[in-house]
Design a protein around this nucleic acid. Structure first.
Length: 892
RNA sequence: GGGGGCAUAGCUCAGCCGGUUAGAUCGCUUGCUCGACAAGCAAGAGGCCACUGGUUCGAAUCCAGUUGUCCCCACCA
């Protein structure tokens, strides 16, 4: 049974229905099947706070294309979805809401009450994004959906933490860390974004304690002066040699601090003398440690000054800076101010300026963990697509510092460390301990902090498959096949998954990292909330359909660069869908009896006509190329080829050629044409399905096929076809050349389109003439020609039969004459011939020069030289023909 | 301070492991309601492939440099 299609493509009419059918029929489910190879992708989990944006749409479309393609190829394809608890982002969001609605801070309602609200919030909004993903057409296995804070992931996180701790790879200590005063938490290095801003170097005079001339230091952060404990210079710096060991006075504050010698200062930067503030600068911290200097904290975690800042105590850091500079200036200590660009670190979540602060935190020791992760990239067990990202990956790992994993937040995995209430001893354990191993006490307090969100994301490729349990899923689906993600996320996530996977599983969590760019707006700007230039994928789907969106995203994306969104692109994508829709309508309307349950058709070789072989061969060759492209992750190229095949080969040529038979009376001819139409369309649908799953499935259903397209098979390449079909295929190509030439002549001469033309063709030889005769039907029909006469070049009667006054064209293997009686325009013909001559002259000149070149003839491969010779001969031949024609009608 | 990408038709982009007459979409021009499709069809205009050198018989393609542009990394005197 077939269903008829509506005249116009309307995706809203079927996308939702089809998705529901797939889901209820279990089409996305990956059942372990030892007879088949697994193909696994774990989805980068979107934040529960998130709405689906264009970045997700691109990321997930690429994954769905790969999954659907491999599923068609017969792999046991698992795409595992999930969401991320997004510690900071969610906590900030819920806290903001609490403040806005009830005027309370999270501290005021307390930890448990706050977490209760976050959980409620998650229940309410956490599922929203997964509904949006369904609109996109994601064929992920929803029954395996996970959440980074569900029971299993939680267990994995604790297990990983304890194991690393037991191996000495996790430690707690007071270190210089990045602190976000607005979010109120520490950050890892990856979470700090660097930016150059316009700032100042303030040159400040520190007077000498013994009445000497003192020393001038430059600083961009004068408010940290209250934490100064020394001024450092290089021991070999002639300017300051005499001061080493002496004291200088901290201006206004009046505190005495020593001038010390240290290799850290760079004599070329600033004044060559550096103020040392160990509690507020990572370099100074190191210097301070080397010299046993005190660490004076002059700024609190809320970025307000401490009592060390005297009268500025309690003041905001930047207000203090202004006031303090003013005071220094008035006191005569400010030597000069220099406008410079200053690099600052910003919090990746809230954009606040990060402060280096001394704080007790938990860290992962990275050196030993990084080594295997470096090795897998170098020895090829992990490959980056495109390749150049490997360098970025390696550079980060080779330069890595310890990872600060504790966060002063509430929403997240709480650190499994317990402090004895009696003696303070730390116990790290899977469960809360009963007795303290140090003092035997029984009362414990769990660490207040939670873990960095990325600590749990790092385990995603195996925690979602059951780790630390040895589940069947884990052994079958791990390691996964490919990780698809934006380049932004390499450091946060990819690197950490690799070393965690190697540590826990002994195997790299994925074979390939497929990296794509960002989706920007139509003028190339990053889509952002502040610019309000974001485009909502759901609205785009409502307007154009999910297939059109997916088409646009893949077609426009090359792996390593950003792409732009535009309405124009959406329209042309939708138009393509409409084109396919109508082609399918045509096939269905004409093939009522032929479609149905039997698998495609059994082509009766003998019944095939040249155009049938031409299109079958065309598709066959394309299958090989497209498959190769997809294996190399060249999805956009593969899609372009599929698209070209559908639009150009199938719609514009094959369907037009086949109409002759369909509208004729001969039932046998009709049947063959119909079966090829359906067979080719079926393969085209298979090729396009990964990219445009809805429309292809809908058409598939209307063809009355057994089963779903999603569960069908990828077309296979027939190696012998080229040899079998090449001859017929070439006939069609010849006819196409003639059709194009006649159309061109008609347009040039501005002949009335409805007017039938008579065409005389002079073929190079008898065989060619036969070919042209045999395809005369196509030429007549597609070029609107009433009769065609094929002559053989050089044959005795040929000369007499060539129309005296005609427009001509030269195609491969033949000359074409259209009598001017049909066209009535000599001037146009002369002009056209002149242009043709000029073009051929240029080509002859170029080719002759090339062949006259000794070097070329002797050094280039013989095949290339022969090809060029052939081209030249043909061009010269054509030129002679054109010149003769031009001469013949010179005076008409 | 270090590293990388990009520069091709009016726009957005392909092509780039060397050898075609350098392609596509949108836009533009002309013509066309002919029994799938005007969300269409046919024909056409439009490019010193950023610049300068080099390698080569041959460069949009490989190499070096220049300019412009975007990005990433970097403990910020």
């Amino acid at each position: 049974m077939t269903r008829n299609l509506n005249k116009t493509y309307d995706p809203t009419g079927f996308e939702k229905r089809i998705y529901e059918e797939w889901e209820t029929e279990g089409c996305f489910r990956a059942e372990i099947d030892e007879d088949r190879k697994p193909y696994t992708i774990v989805m980068p989990p979107p934040n529960i706070t998130g709405q689906l944006h264009m970045g997700h749409a691109l990321d997930q479309t690429l994954q769905d294309v790969l999954i659907r393609w491999r599923r068609l190829q017969g792999y046991c394809a698992l795409w595992l979805p999930g969401t991320d608890h997004a510690s900071i982002a969610t906590e900030v969001r819920v806290a903001d809401e609490l403040l806005a609605r009830e005027g309370k801070t999270k501290e005021e309602i307390g930890r448990e009450a706050f977490l209760e609200r976050v959980r409620a919030w998650k229940e309410l909004y956490g599922g929203r994004i997964t509904e949006q993903q369904r609109r996109l057409g994601n064929s992920c296995d929803w029954e395996r959906e996970r959440f980074t804070m569900d029971e299993g992931c939680n267990k994995a996180v604790v297990e990983f933490f304890v194991r690393l701790y037991e191996k000495g790879l996790i430690y707690r200590g007071k270190r210089m860390i990045n602190w976000c005063p607005v979010c109120g938490t520490s950050l890892s290095d990856a979470e700090v974004e660097h930016e150059d801003i316009a700032g100042n170097y303030w040159y400040i005079h520190y007077p000498s304690a013994d009445g000497g001339k003192g020393i001038v230091v430059a600083t961009s952060r004068p408010e940290t002066m209250f934490g100064d404990v020394a001024v450092a210079v290089r021991s070999d710096d002639e300017r300051y040699k005499d001061l080493i060991g002496k004291d200088v006075i901290l201006p206004i504050a009046g505190r005495k601090i020593p001038v010390i010698a240290d290799p850290y200062p760079d004599p070329k930067k600033g004044t060559g003398a550096v103020k040392i503030t160990p509690a507020h600068d990572p370099n100074d911290y190191e210097v301070g440690r080397r010299h046993g200097l005190p660490e004076i904290v002059c700024m609190n975690f809320d970025a307000r000054m401490t009592d060390e800042a005297g009268q500025y105590s309690g003041m905001d850091r930047f207000e203090c800076r202004d006031a303090w500079v003013k005071a220094l200036d008035e006191g005569g200590y400010l030597v000069k101010t220099e406008r410079v660009s200053i690099p600052v670190g910003r919090c990746y979540r809230c954009d606040a300026t990060v402060e280096p602060m001394l704080s007790n935190q938990w860290f992962v020791r990275m050196e030993t963990l990084a080594q295997p992760a470096i090795a897998v990239a170098k020895d090829g067990r992990l490959s980056h697509v495109p390749e150049r990202f490997e360098k970025i990956y390696l550079h980060w790992l080779e330069d890595i510092r310890d990872w600060c994993i504790s966060r002063q937040l509430w929403w997240g995995h709480r650190i499994p460390a317990y402090y004895c209430e009696t003696c303070g001893e730390i116990t790290v354990a899977r469960e809360k301990p009963h007795t303290c191993s140090a003092c035997g006490g029984g009362a414990f307090r769990q660490d207040e902090d939670v873990l960095d969100t990325w600590f749990s994301s790092a385990l995603w490729p195996f925690s979602t498959l059951g780790w630390p349990e040895k589940t069947p899923d884990l052994s079958y689906f791990y390691p996964t096949s490919v990780l698809v993600t934006a380049y932004e996320i390499i450091f946060f996530w990819v690197v950490r998954m690799v070393f965690s996977g190697l540590e826990c599983m002994g195997e790299c969590p994925f074979e390939h990292v497929f990296i794509h760019g960002l989706v920007r707006d139509s003028s190339g700007r990053k889509m952002s909330k502040s610019l309000d230039n974001g485009v909502d994928p759901i609205q785009v789907i409502d307007t154009y359909g999910a297939d059109a969106l997916r088409f646009m995203l893949v077609n426009g994306s090359s792996p390593d660069s950003d792409m732009r969104y535009s309405e124009d692109k959406m329209e042309s994508s939708r138009n393509f869908a409409n084109k396919l829709w109508n082609a399918a309508r045509f096939v269905i309307m004409n093939s009522d009896d032929e479609t149905g349950s039997e698998d495609d058709f059994a082509p009766d070789e003998a019944a095939l006509r040249p155009e049938d072989r031409w299109i079958l061969l065309k598709v066959n060759e394309a299958v090989a190329e497209i498959t190769r492209n997809m294996e190399k992750f060249e999805l956009s190229l593969a899609l372009q080829k599929t698209c070209e095949l559908i639009r150009d080969a199938y719609c514009d040529w094959y369907i037009e050629m086949v109409k002759e038979r369909l509208y004729g009376e001969d039932e046998d001819l009709k049947r063959a044409a119909r079966s090829v139409l359906v067979a080719v369309l079926s393969d085209l649908l298979r090729l396009l399905h990964p990219y445009m799953p809805f429309i292809t499935e809908e058409i598939w259903g209307c063809l009355g096929k057994d089963g779903r397209l999603i569960a069908d098979r990828w077309p296979s390449y027939d190696e012998g076809m080229r040899e079998r079909y090449a001859e017929d295929s070439a006939k069609i190509e010849t006819a196409m050349g003639i059709i194009r030439a006649v159309r061109n002549i008609r347009a040039e001469a501005e002949a009335p389109p409805a007017r039938k033309l008579t065409v005389t063709v002079v073929a190079d030889d008898a065989a060619q003439a036969d070919i042209i005769e045999s395809t005369a039907g196509h030429i007549e029909r597609l070029a609107n020609v009433s009769s065609i006469v094929a002559l053989v070049s050089g044959a005795s009667e040929t000369r007499t039969k060539i129309p005296e006054e005609a427009m001509t064209a030269v195609v491969s293997g033949a000359e074409i004459y259209v009598p001017l009686d049909d066209l009535l325009d000599f001037a146009a013909e002369r002009e056209r011939l002149a242009r043709e001559k000029e073009k051929l002259e240029g080509e002859i000149k170029r080719l002759s020069a090339k062949l006259a070149n000794e070097g070329f003839v002797s050094k280039a491969p013989q095949a290339v030289v022969a090809k060029e010779r052939e081209k030249l001969a043909k061009a010269e031949d054509n030129f002679a023909k054109v010149a003769a024609r031009a001469e013949a009608i010179r005076d008409k």
